[in-house]
Computed example of a mutant assay.
Amino acid sequence: MIDLAVGNIKQSSVSAADDQQRESLFTLLKQALKARGYTYARLAAEMNMSELSIKRLFKDKDCKMSRLFEICAIIGLSVDELIQMQQRFRQVPEFLPESVEAALAKDKHLFLILILLVSQLDITTVQTLMQIDKARLYQHLRALEKLGLIELKTGERFRFCVPLPIRWRMGGALSDLIKGVNRRYIVHCLDNERDPEYAFTTASRLMSKSSALQIQNNLRRIREEFDYLSSQDQLFFKAEELQFYKLVFGMGPFSVDVILADE
């Protein structure tokens, strides 16, 4: 991770991982500039620097934290948002403690609010989607805080106290809740299959394991693209321009026993 206390991002001795982190950070920053209509020339003018200096800064990926803060302030982006997005692209999902999963399993509203927060929705948007009043929402947020998942801050802000993204135990305490959520959502997609905003497809075919693996790898890449594009959109678009979407897919050997089994 990049230490914000360090005066300069580029240090004399950095590992390959540090180089990659700095590369991804500046890549995201350049995308943010483009999305907000900033050229190097315009940025240079607002920073009282030459265009050549700005180009060199982005080419060398070498700037003091004060410069990085200044650039982010000019384009209306916080450094925290930039770094959080960078971290989401490189972290491996981790499980929550089983005791925390058990607590979440007792209250589906609490679990859903956590899902929405993990999906990078702000507190105001979560309240709108959940259709609950502010007092009730903050009861749930306090519960998440007591579980050590978030820390509430002033101004309807919060920070996560656990690494993101989160991985759920499919055979754990949340198993039935997760199955129910996805089962109901698949039915919802089937019911709205003719709506152009929904996409649903199903197929059963004979194929080799190697071909099946190829398709499964493609599905994993779609999930990665889904995560990447959604994070980009939340960084570059206004909240009112975004719609909350869910992605569900499954593929594996077809078992008639599973299909015919009672609920």
Rank of each mutant, 00 (worst) to 15 (best):
D3I: 06
A5F: 13
V6A: 12
V6E: 03
V6R: 11
V6W: 00
G7F: 07
V14F: 10
A17H: 04
A17S: 10
D18C: 01
D19Y: 13
Q20P: 00
F26T: 09
L28F: 14
L29I: 12
K30Q: 14
Q31H: 13
A32V: 02
G37C: 10
G37T: 01
A41F: 06
R42L: 07
L43G: 10
E46A: 15
E46R: 06
M49L: 15
M49H: 10
L57W: 01
D60L: 11
D62K: 07
D62Q: 11
R67H: 12
I74P: 06
I75Q: 04
G76K: 08
G76Q: 09
D80K: 14
D80N: 09
I83T: 05
I83S: 01
Q84V: 10
Q84H: 11
Q87N: 09
R88I: 01
F89T: 12
F89D: 05
R90G: 09
R90Q: 09
V92K: 10
E94D: 07
L96H: 00
P97M: 04
E98A: 09
S99K: 13
L104W: 00
A105I: 05
K106Y: 01
L112D: 01
I113Q: 05
I113K: 08
I115M: 07
L116I: 00
V118E: 15
Q120V: 10
D122A: 05
I123A: 04
Q127S: 06
Q127K: 15
Q131V: 07
D133M: 03
K134C: 05
K134W: 04
A135T: 02
L137D: 14
Y138S: 07
Q139R: 09
H140F: 02
H140P: 08
H140M: 01
K146D: 11
T154E: 03
G155F: 06
G155S: 02
F160H: 05
V162K: 02
V162M: 02
P163G: 00
R169I: 02
M170R: 12
G171H: 14
G172E: 10
L174I: 10
L174P: 08
S175V: 04
K179P: 01
G180H: 10
R184K: 06
V187L: 14
L190C: 13
D191H: 13
N192H: 11
T201E: 07
T201I: 08
T202E: 03
S204L: 08
S208L: 10
K209P: 02
R221T: 02
R223T: 07
R223Q: 05
R223F: 02
E224I: 01
E225A: 01
Q232D: 14
K238Q: 13
K238Y: 04
A239P: 08
E240P: 06
E240N: 13
E241V: 03
L242E: 11
L242C: 01
F244A: 06
L247K: 01
V248T: 12
P253N: 12
D257Y: 12
D257C: 05
I259E: 10
A261N: 13
A261R: 15
